[in-house]
């Protein structure tokens, strides 16, 4: 949760998927879907999608990066990521 590993993985920059998804996804929906596919290898459910799309609504640049970083943080800290099924 608070360690260096996750912190380094989710820090948005030009060369990683966090920065890439934040900057290049054509729509909010595709941005969320890409993050889910990258971390959990599944698309988001409609509930999940609308929850995260709402957070992305109206954001650009830095604030948007922050939202995407938090999305990745949450995905990497789930039971689903750690244990799959």
């Amino acid at each position: 949760m608070n360690g260096d590993l996750v912190s380094e993985l989710i820090e948005a920059n030009l060369f990683n998927s966090v920065g890439g998804v934040a900057a290049m996804a054509p729509t909010h929906e595709q941005c969320v879907a890409a993050a889910f596919l990258i971390c959990l290898s599944r698309p988001p459910t409609p509930t999940e999608s609308s929850h995260f799309v709402a957070q992305l609504q109206g954001t650009t640049d830095k604030p948007r990066q922050r939202v995407v970083e938090d999305l990745f943080w949450s995905l990497l800290n789930t039971t689903e990521f750690s244990w799959n099924h």
């Binding site: 929850h51 957070q55 938090d70 943080w73 949450s74 789930t78």
Partner: peptide, 20 residues
């Protein structure tokens, strides 16, 4: 942001827990 992260986490956890 920490609160946002934790509430996000809860949303995804609920999906995973459903049925298992």
């Amino acid at each position: 942001r920490q609160q946002r992260r934790l509430s996000n986490l809860e949303i995804v956890e609920q999906t995973f827990r459903r049925g298992r």
